[in-house]
Simulated scan of single mutants.
Amino acid sequence: MSVNLHSFTQYAPGSSRKILDNINLTVEDGAFIALVGPSGAGKTSLLRAIGGLSPVYEGQLLIDDLPIGHSDLPKRKTGFVFQNYALFRHMSVARNISFGLDVLPRKQRPDRAAITARVQDLLELIQLPHLADARPDQLSGGQRQRVALARALATEPKLLLLDEPFGALDPIVRRTIRRWLRELHDKLGLTTILVTHDHEEALDIADRLVVMQDGRIVQDADATTLNTSPQTPFVMQFLGETLEFAGKIQDGQFIPEDTDALPFPVSEKNGKTTVFIRPCDVQFISGKGAAHILSRSRNPNGLYHYAVQTTQRALDITTPMPTEISEGEQFGLDISHGKIFANLP
């Protein structure tokens, strides 16, 4: 099932403030995309609009190339999983899973035997057949998440919408569940849209990341493109630790304000600007400046951390490779692998 939004705009109730501003998005049939960005970026608002939970908007929303209005919600074949799971505490796991089938109109509802068989299949799929009679309060967080997913899948949706589904889980369970979810997506041939504020989670599971800021899409690309060619400083900063070096471009050279950062050739026009660079891309050049290492350590992931003092400021730099710079040795910072954004003064 494909999703297309064209010039899609939505306002806060009773206000002229835009929650979603001129959204253009294409989600191909079978794709797995993640909507990422900070709180208030519009991720959940966009997901709810696609799911038919926010029907008033400007622009166009197409499901499988057909305009879909709020009255056509049952035709969307959509499963929705919320952050808090929204399981019914008074119902068993099996009843929670069958709920979407139980409430279908009589003409669309399978008979009881078919519903029972469907629930059993889903219990096997989520690897919890032994917990059919348990109540949600008897389950772990990871188990409740699987039940919520099974309930969303009970009506055999083609489009699965997930709103921060891993937020309440501990890191180890999160990794297990998201791997399982990706396998499930591939196995069932779903189109999946995930909302998360965790860019590492999105990079691990999704085909594409749609980065949002202030109700707009600022970049829509795969992980490699986002890392190598971020279109704005916000995208680069959101996706990982970033150092900034203010300075000016003069006669084909970027000249940093920090005198321990080394000038390097650029093609941009003269004027003030800023270089953005990942700490791991900063190189230490012995004898080319007055920077020095205050302390060094190695973290549990095997990365090397250096507390560096330049003439103007202190920097934290983490790299995958150790430096040969010795204690007390002075050096300059090669920042030539950084990025200058043309639209940034």
Rank of each mutant, 00 (worst) to 15 (best):
A12V: 13
Q138N: 11
A134H: 14
I340H: 02
H185F: 14
Q219C: 11
A168H: 08
G14P: 10
F82C: 11
Q145T: 06
G338D: 08
G42F: 03
N4A: 14
I126L: 07
Q237A: 05
G167C: 13
R135A: 10
R296L: 04
N299H: 06
A113M: 13
F234S: 04
F82G: 08
I68D: 01
V282N: 12
D21Q: 11
A117S: 12
I115G: 00
Q231N: 02
G37L: 02
V27K: 09
G51I: 08
L160K: 12
K43T: 00
D198P: 15
P13K: 12
A307P: 00
A86M: 00
R106E: 09
A291I: 06
Q10H: 07
Y11C: 13
G52S: 07
L53K: 14
P38A: 09
E241T: 01
L35P: 00
F99D: 07
V81E: 04
D186W: 01
P345Q: 14
A113K: 14
Q60H: 00
D260T: 12
N22F: 01
M236C: 05
L35D: 00
P263N: 09
R298M: 15
D65R: 00
A152Y: 05
A291F: 03
Q120F: 05
N301L: 03
Y304K: 02
P233D: 13
L161W: 13
S92C: 05
T192H: 05
A314K: 12
F234A: 11
F234M: 04
T9S: 15
R17T: 15
F331C: 07
R109L: 13
P129L: 05
V93F: 01
I277E: 09
L181M: 15
A114Q: 15
K248I: 10
L239R: 06
M321R: 15
F331H: 03
Q253W: 12
I19W: 02
D207H: 14
R151P: 13
G332P: 11
K18V: 13
P136G: 06
D111N: 13
H6A: 13
F99C: 04
